[in-house]
Simulated assay, not measured.
Amino acid sequence: MMGRPPASGAPVFRFFPQEVQEMEKFLEDGKGAVPPRDTISSLAEKFSAAPERAGKILVQWKQVWTWFQNRRHAQKAKGTKVPGNTAPSPRDDSGAKRVVTNSAAVPSGRNVLVASEMEFEAKSARDGAWYDVASFVTHRMFESGDPEVRVRFAGFGAEEDEWVNVKKCVRQRSLPCEASECVVMLSGDLVLCFQEGKEQALYFDAHVLDAQRRRHDARGCRCRFLVRYDHDQSEV
């Protein structure tokens, strides 16, 4: 199961610097590709057995997988400027954001099984979070006229495939943004926002409530944004 977000106020999980360095080495050696499931599971077991964590908390493979996904998106954001999008680049921090693109129709009929140049994300019914889509396995149409597709989420196996409503739960993949583009983020904007908890860290839809504009420095954007998550109405 993909899990559900922790209760509000739960301790936030963080990787130790040495763990981050080791994962970054895997990304470098793999030329930016996310490692396979067995490698990610091995890393989670290794981190859990470290003296700093032994007997305290187990590192879940999904936490390691999420880190790789976010770092990959952050690297992509640095390499490609996306005009008009305003959220900071995703990173291993609470509150990291990706701008939600307009909903895009999934190819219908036989084309739904064919890889497209357009990348998609889908909302899981299991936890309400959005995940990148690796492929559309098959499709079906109900008498009501609502199409559904069976999606395979990036980084997950066939056992995690889900049937999702095309109109409500599939859209073009949200775009990571550069910190320099924060100036046009306005109250009411919809963003795909990273929410961290003790057991997991996932992307959920959120709306911007307020922004505190601050002067940028050598570290980049220092502005602060107040957002409300749509799934649990929590504010960060």
Rank of each mutant, 00 (worst) to 15 (best):
F153L: 01
F225P: 01
S8C: 10
M1A: 12
F194N: 09
E235P: 02
A77W: 01
C193L: 05
F142Y: 09
S108E: 15
A129P: 00
E199T: 14
K168T: 04
Q200K: 07
S94N: 08
Q21F: 07
E159N: 03
Q195S: 08
G220R: 00
R150H: 07
V82Q: 14
W130G: 02
Q195V: 04
A134C: 11
G9Y: 10
M141W: 14
R150A: 04
E196A: 11
R152C: 14
R219E: 13
K76R: 12
G155Q: 03
F47H: 04
L209D: 13
K62I: 10
A49F: 07
G197V: 06
R224V: 08
E143F: 11
A77C: 07
L43D: 03
Y203M: 00
D38M: 06
G109V: 10
Q21Y: 13
F225Y: 10
P35T: 11
Q69N: 05
P147V: 00
R126M: 02
A49K: 03
F156G: 02
F26E: 14
C182T: 09
M118G: 05
E52P: 01
L175Y: 00
V183M: 12
V166D: 12
D230I: 06
E119H: 08
K168H: 05
F156C: 01
V64K: 01
V106M: 13
T86D: 12
F13V: 03
M1I: 06
M118E: 13
T80R: 12
A54V: 10
N111K: 12
P11V: 06
N165M: 09
P5G: 03
W61D: 15
D93K: 08
G109S: 13
A201P: 05
V164D: 05
A49W: 02
G32K: 07
D161I: 12
V149F: 15
G128W: 07
H231N: 06
T66S: 14
C177H: 00
A96M: 11
W61Q: 15
A54S: 11
S234K: 07
E181I: 12
P5R: 15
P83W: 12
Q69W: 09
F194V: 02
H139A: 15
V106H: 11
K167M: 13
E117V: 06
H231W: 06
Q63L: 10
K198F: 10
P35D: 09
R72A: 13
A50Q: 08
L175N: 05
A134I: 01
G79Q: 11
K76P: 01
M2I: 01
M23A: 03
G128T: 01
K198W: 03
G30Y: 05
F156K: 01
I57Y: 00
T101K: 15
V166P: 14
F153W: 04
A7D: 05
A7R: 03
D38S: 13
K46A: 15
R4C: 13
S42V: 00
A211W: 13
T101F: 15
A87Q: 01
V12C: 10
S94H: 03
S103N: 14
A74P: 00
G109N: 12
S42L: 02
Q60Y: 08
S187P: 00
S180Q: 09
G109A: 15
E121S: 06
S8G: 02
L192Y: 03
G95D: 02
F136A: 08
R171V: 04
R152M: 13
K167Q: 14
